[in-house]
């Protein structure tokens, strides 16, 4: 009897676990199937065409791709140095009494939903950008800055974790040789934790590029490629969030599905690079 239950239990768990793989495969298949109409209509031009005009049934994803790349790049440029600073502060400078509360609050801030960052951006940051640069304040620059603030807690926390993997004995040996804190950071911690730190940044990049709510409020959803960062722009997730519920034709839908597929492929690639190349999983208990 218990033999049968044993088999049923084992197979149920296996069935569900394998189901996760099938689910992911299903997601890719469904998105691809729904993209077919757009793929057939535009082919490769979909990603090189810069005109997105639903009323003319013309869909080119270049402005959205451009917006995703530029806003994420801005966010990374702004948040990487600050994240490194916070991580150095938490691992080498802060006194134990400050380290824990600051570390925990940063982790808690990483749990605040991104829609809140977006809302703050709209009400408090847009006016600042408007006053400083003119225009309406809703722009690529605003989106990049709000995005950088949103990913900062996550990035700082994982960078600190990566730095903390450095064995104390290595750091202590360097201090014993008369190294300053900066010497220890640059000659011991960074070389030791390099892969982990870079992996964390790429992981944060993967998250930032798919982030929707933090930027939807402040980007404007304007399908135009402009080198002026203070102009409204759009990105792949912003386009999806604004237009999905309103699409009214088969080709329009199909183009939005192709955008989703594109975004999923980009994120999967970036996150996989971070995971497999830089962050080999550490097994618990080893």
């Amino acid at each position: 009897m218990s033999n049968i239950i044993d088999k049923i239990f084992a197979n149920t768990t296996r069935f569900i676990a394998v189901g996760i793989l099938l689910l992911v495969a299903w997601i890719f298949t469904v998105l691809f199937e729904h993209s077919l109409e757009s793929i057939e209509a535009f082919g490769f031009n979909f990603i090189t065409e810069d005109k997105w005009a639903p009323n003319l049934e013309k869909f080119g994803a270049l402005p959205a791709i451009y917006g995703s790349v530029i806003s994420t790049f801005l966010a990374m440029v702004l948040s990487v140095p600050v994240a490194i600073g916070i991580a150095i502060f938490l691992s080498e400078i802060a006194h134990a009494k400050i380290k824990t509360p600051v570390g925990v609050s940063i982790e808690l801030l990483a749990a605040i939903p991104s829609v809140i960052y977006g809302m703050w951006g709209l009400f408090y940051f847009v006016p600042i950008i408007r006053d400083a640069f003119g225009g309406i304040g809703i722009s690529m620059l605003t989106a990049g800055i709000v995005l950088s603030i949103m990913i900062l807690p996550f990035m700082a926390a994982v960078t600190r974790d990566a730095m903390n993997t450095t064995p104390d004995i290595l750091k202590e040996s360097a201090y014993a040789l008369g190294g300053t804190k900066w010497d220890v950071v640059k000659d011991i911690i960074i070389p030791y934790a390099k892969a982990g730190i870079i992996g964390s940044f790429i992981l944060a990049l993967g998250r930032a590029i798919g982030e929707t709510m933090a930027v939807t409020f402040v980007m404007g959803n304007v399908h135009k490629i402009s080198t002026d960062l203070t102009e409204p722009a759009t990105s792949i997730p912003v386009t999806l969030a604004n237009e999905f519920a309103e699409a009214d034709s088969g080709l329009y839908y199909s183009s939005l599905f192709e955008l989703s597929l594109l975004l999923l492929v980009i994120s999967f690639t970036i996150i996989s690079i971070a995971k497999f190349y830089f962050l080999r999983r550490k097994r618990i208990g080893q």
Partner: peptide, 10 residues
């Protein structure tokens, strides 16, 4: 870490 909006599309 995959974008959640894509799950919405699916």
């Amino acid at each position: 870490s995959a974008p959640s909006i894509v799950i919405g599309a699916f």
